[in-house]
Amino acid sequence: MRYALAGLLFATAPFGAEAQEATFTTGLATEINPGLFDCGPGTRASAVGEIKSDDGTVWTVPAATNYGTAPFATDLFNECGGDRLDSLAELDLDSVPIMDAGGSEQFTAYVFADNYFELYVNGTLIAVDPVPFTKFNSNVVRFTADRPVTLAIMMADWEENLGLGSEDNRGKAFHPGDGGLVAHIQDANGATVAITDDSWRAQTFYTSPLNDRGCLVVDGHSRDSSACSQEGVDDATGYSAAHWAVPSDWMMPSFDDSIWPAAVTFSNETVGVNNKKAFTNFEDIFDTPGANADFIWSSNLVLDNLVLLRKTAD
């Protein structure tokens, strides 16, 4: 089944879908949008593309999004025309809009995403990242909900080489980038409700670039690209991408995420945020003593480009 979202076409899986084999595309996608957002000179364009797989399915890369149709998360640090706070102490929390995810209890989520996120709470989309690619930014989102709170986050590691999960970087025309998400969710009293750690579930839906399809190991709901090369190249002729259809109910509290692998944690150093003010200005909330949030992703921080994350907190 395919349907349109925010003007883009992408594949979805029906309710109760069994484990899927990968569907493959080869080469570059066709650009359908030159950029969701323009941050000016020296930044990378958040372009969107479409590509047809071997079985005829049309895929949107790096992701079909709700950018431009859903509310933007409030800035903590945004060099692309937004607020740039020096610390959490400068945040006027009362000025942050409260999004309605049902219920009456108030919560606050602090988020740093590499690159783009969409946040669902109890099945309701409440905020999206205002900066899809670069420069790196961080955000705060307030919302009302009832417990248990199901947090579902779509993460996309953006790309310049559409369909091949890579960018011109480190002296190579096709260099795969990496992703990562760190978040801390608190209640109205400032008590921790959830932090990103290995108790979350993470599933991959787009992996690229692949210089050899045989390196990808799919076993049930495990989609393991750890044996695939992460080396940047100047010629990606013949390189592939693997895609899986996104379940249409993946964000709902009723979705059974026990079939997904556990999220894998990564250090601040591995993700490379120690020189990014969007993170370091707010280490007191992301690396809170006693509630130190980890960066999380699927098992492959570099090649897995569209990752869905879930956690239900009491």
Rank of each mutant, 00 (worst) to 15 (best):
A6H: 06
A6K: 07
L9V: 13
L9F: 08
A11S: 14
G16H: 09
E18Y: 07
A19R: 10
A22L: 15
T23H: 14
T23N: 14
T23F: 14
G27M: 12
A29R: 00
A29T: 00
T30H: 09
I32P: 14
N33F: 06
G35H: 07
R44Y: 11
V48M: 12
G49V: 10
G49I: 08
E50F: 03
G56H: 06
V58L: 13
P62Y: 05
P62G: 06
T69P: 07
A70H: 08
P71I: 02
T74Y: 00
F77A: 02
G82Q: 08
L85K: 10
E90P: 05
E90N: 03
E90Y: 05
L91I: 03
L91G: 03
G103E: 04
S104A: 15
A113Q: 06
D114F: 02
Y120F: 12
G123I: 00
V128I: 12
V128P: 06
V128M: 10
F133V: 03
S138N: 00
N139W: 03
N139L: 07
A145W: 04
A152L: 00
M155Q: 01
D157S: 13
E159W: 13
E160C: 11
L162R: 08
G165W: 10
D168Y: 15
G171D: 14
K172E: 14
A173N: 06
H175R: 12
D178N: 13
G180D: 02
L181G: 01
L181T: 02
V182H: 00
V182L: 01
D187I: 09
A191K: 12
T192M: 07
I195F: 01
T196Y: 01
T196W: 05
T196R: 04
T196D: 03
D197F: 07
S199N: 05
S199I: 05
W200T: 01
W200C: 02
A202D: 06
A202Q: 05
F205K: 00
Y206P: 00
L210Q: 05
N211C: 10
N211E: 12
D212R: 12
L216Q: 09
V217I: 15
H221V: 03
S222M: 12
S222E: 15
R223A: 12
D224P: 07
S225D: 09
S225G: 06
S226W: 10
A227F: 08
C228F: 07
E231I: 07
E231Y: 04
E231G: 07
D234T: 08
D235P: 08
D235V: 12
A236H: 13
S240W: 09
S240K: 08
H243M: 15
P247R: 13
D249N: 15
F255P: 05
S258N: 09
I259M: 15
I259E: 14
A262L: 15
A263K: 04
V264P: 06
T265V: 11
V271M: 11
V271W: 08
G272D: 05
V273A: 14
N274D: 11
A278D: 11
F282D: 11
E283L: 11
E283R: 15
D284F: 06
P289I: 01
G290F: 02
G290C: 02
N292P: 11
A293S: 10
A293I: 06
A293H: 04
A293V: 03
W297D: 04
N300Y: 12
N300F: 13
V302I: 11
N305T: 13
L308D: 01
L309Y: 01
R310E: 00
T312Y: 00
A313K: 00
D314M: 02
